[in-house]
Structure formats: structure tokens, C-alpha cells
Design a protein around this nucleic acid. Sequence first.
DNA 1: TTCCTTGCAAATCGTTTGCATAATG
DNA 2: CATTATGCAAACGATTTGCAAGGAA
Lengths: 131, 131
Amino acid sequence: MALKHSRQRDMIKAFLMGRKDHPTADVVYMNVRQENPNISLGTVYRNLTLLADIGEIQRLRLGDGVDHFDADTSPHYHFICTECGSVIDLEMESVEQITETAGKYFNGRITGHVTYFYGTCGACCKVLNAQ
Amino acid sequence: MALKHSRQRDMIKAFLMGRKDHPTADVVYMNVRQENPNISLGTVYRNLTLLADIGEIQRLRLGDGVDHFDADTSPHYHFICTECGSVIDLEMESVEQITETAGKYFNGRITGHVTYFYGTCGACCKVLNAQ
DNA sequence: TTCCTTGCAAATCGTTTGCATAATG
DNA sequence: CATTATGCAAACGATTTGCAAGGAA
């Protein structure tokens, strides 16, 4: 299964790297299609899955029923606004020690954790205060 | 929208209360059907959603593409085994302070967080060590 | 030429919903 | 009786997949 070069994959990766709002497969499709109207949704899904599998992008399952994708593969936390649904990076240090905390109470090996924060984003706070 | 009593809802709630392995809707359906073969999958979904909405059960979105349900509505953490997929309660204190930590770095209001831990459960560790 | 990748459409999976009927209060 | 709940099947949205044709090494 040697990887071959593909224009479509390049476009998808490039698009993702230019955004920091964690778009869904459909958003990727809509945008990449403007540059290449022939690309199919299946190809977008296939490449997003492939890129995530080889670790070039990150797949985010935020519990909203849709997968989000992030070209930033460094470990970092995310915030989801319950008002507008936007996904925002959190620039905070890792709280990896909670993995150790959890391990003390558990019969087995804990190797990691997934955490996302939710609440109201800055923009939505403003709107709510103005009302 | 006054709630009316229903045998099906009782059975679903009772089944969930008797398990601590966080079953999916389909597992609930399979089991409740043994006692009432006429119950439909739609009814199971409708009641799980209703019970979660009124706070009598908890819906868990663990990122595996399927919703899990938990009759234990107290805030607690979950562990997911990457080997066998089982979901196990973690008896640990809340790490609610990470919400404050995150808040310091964020322009907006953070009201909560979702965390789950993953790794290898006790049973799977045993199997792996035996190999 | 090999075999990875694509476009397309059909299939799959979990979940929701419309509707006529049954059960509840 | 007024309304909520049910069973059934069809609809849904996100994602995956089979296949024949196209493109890269």
C-alpha cells in the first residue's frame, strides 16, 4: 500500500492547513470543490481518513454527530460554543496529570485522555449581553 | 406535554439501572425485547432520548459513533478500553479545576468539560501479558 | 505495467420521524 | 375524552464502499 501522489489529497491538506476552525468533511468538500469542481465527496472522506490514519491531520469527535478535522496535530484542547457550535483552540498547558490521577483508581493501563470544554464563546457572550 | 406512564419506558429504565456497562440503544432493544417481543427500536430510541432530556439517564457520546446510555446520572468519569471497547466507570474525584485552568486562557465563558480516558482495561491487560 | 486513486452511485449504520392505532389519565 | 405513547416503516444525515476508469511510479 505505497502511497502515491494525488492532487486531490494535496488540495485537501492545503485547505485544512489554511484554517483553524476545524471544518467538517462537508465544509472541506464545498471549499475544495471551488478549485476543483470534479472532486467527489467520497474522495474527500477517503483522504481525510487516510491523512488522519497516517497522522498528518487529526480527527475530532466532539459528540455533535459530525467529525471535525484539524491540520494541527500537536496535542491541544478544544472549546465548543454551545450557542454557535464553533470549535476554538485553547492555548493552555496540558493537564496530563489527570491521567495519573485516574490511573490511581483504575485496574488497568490508562494511556491518555480526551477532553473538550464547552460554554459560550467571546462573540456569543457579546451578543447575549447586548440583548 | 405531560408525561404519561408507559410500560415500555419502565422496562427501559429498569434495564439500564441494572447494568453498569453503558449499553447502546441497540443493546437495550435486544434485551428489553426478551421481556416484551413487541417493543420497537423506535420506541427504545424515543424513550432513551426522553429519559436523557428529563435527566433520568445520561447519554454518553464517546466518539465511537454510537451513543451509550447510563442510568447513573451523577457526574463521574469513564474509561474506554481501546482493545475491547468496554466502557468502565472511574471512581475518582472530579477534576473540575481544569475548567478554571482553561478559563484563564480563554476569551469567553467556559461552563463545563467532558473528559474520557482510554487505554487497556484490566481484563485485556491480562490477555496481552499472557501472549 | 502495476496498483494506487478517483468519480460516481449505491449501500450502510445509527438515529429520527410520520402516521394510524393503542394506552393512559 | 384529550393526549401521550406505540409499532411500523420510511426517511434521514454522515460516512463507507464496490466498481470501472484514470493517473502516478
